[in-house]
């Protein structure tokens, strides 16, 4: 038994985290390049784009920041909008944080600072399958994603003038395909008796998202639909 645990721990190296990040890289690279292109066309310099992707490190927000800068919005409005768009990271971090309580404060801050939809998806997928995760593995996953993101944004900024429409190649669908796969993988790892509950929750989210999108911006709809349906889940799971 001890031997088995040892082997599991050995598999959770920084290197393994890097490897587990690879399937998500197409998403980061294609969206990062697009973010770089949008940055340049919003009159940001390459250095500013590098700084933006290094410090803000959030796909959707970077697009919105550029759009608001172009429209001449006040600084306060841009910062507030970015805060709201990124609020869902609070839910992601809240779900991941209980798995890292045994590590130091600084390690927790380091892991938390680099949480994204994608790294969350990969990590939670491992957790749901009953596999262990640790700090080294998480850092490997997070740092690979972070570096790829910054490089892609800068490349997009440099070569942006030549690639006018990255959508043509279907690369923008990489993210959706990834979220869809992570969803499928999680549903497949759920115990037989609970599957019906989870499928119904998926349907509730679809309906709630559709209804909410009529009244609020999509980033708010994502947060509200998640909170509402997770609460329904708690009430129905007796």
């Amino acid at each position: 038994m001890l031997k088995v645990i040892d082997m599991e721990e050995n598999n959770l190296t920084f290197h393994q985290g890097v490897k587990d990040c690879i399937p998500t890289l197409i998403g980061y690279i294609s969206i990062g390049i697009a973010a770089g292109i949008v940055g340049v066309s919003s009159n940001l310099s390459i250095l500013e784009i590098a700084l933006l992707s290094t410090l803000v490190y959030a796909g959707a927000s970077q697009f919105i920041i550029c759009a608001l800068l172009v429209s001449g919005s006040p600084i306060s409005v841009i910062i507030l909008t970015t805060f709201i768009v990124n609020l869902r990271n609070f839910l992601l971090s809240m779900t991941l944080a209980p798995h890292f309580t045994k590590y130091s404060l600084m390690k927790n801050i380091g892991i938390g600072a680099l949480v994204t939809d994608e790294s969350f998806g990969v990590a939670i997928n491992k957790i749901i399958k009953g596999e262990k995760i640790n700090d080294q593995w998480m850092n490997g996953l997070n740092i690979t994603a972070y570096i790829s993101w910054i490089i892609s944004c800068v490349l997009g900024a440099i070569f942006g003038k030549w690639i006018s429409n990255p959508e043509i190649f279907g690369l923008d669908f990489a993210l959706t395909a990834m979220f869809l796969t992570l969803l499928v993988l999680q549903l497949q790892s759920i115990k037989e008796g609970k599957l019906k509950l989870y499928i119904s929750l998926v349907l509730y989210v679809v309906i709630t998202m559709y209804l909410l999108s009529m009244f609020v911006p999509s980033h708010i709809a994502i947060i509200l639909a998640t909170i509402i349906v997770a609460t329904i889940g708690v009430m129905r799971d007796k």
């Binding site: 869902r88 839910l91 992601l92 809240m94 779900t95 209980p98 939809d117 969350f120 998806g121 939670i124 749901i128 669908f173 993210l175 959706t176 979220f179 869809l180 992570l182 969803l183 999680q186 549903l187 989870y198 929750l201 998926v202 989210v205 679809v206 998202m209 559709y210 999108s213 911006p217 999509s218 709809a221 994502i222 639909a225 998640t226 349906v229 997770a230 609460t231 889940g233 708690v234 799971d237």
Partner: peptide, 24 residues
């Protein structure tokens, strides 16, 4: 709360997929 958190991944992943289908 931990139970609530256990439903978050499925919900947020579904929401992100649905978000890509809806054009506002």
């Amino acid at each position: 709360i931990t139970k609530w958190l256990s439903f978050i991944p499925i919900c947020i992943l579904t929401a992100l997929v649905v978000d890509s289908i809806i054009i506002e």
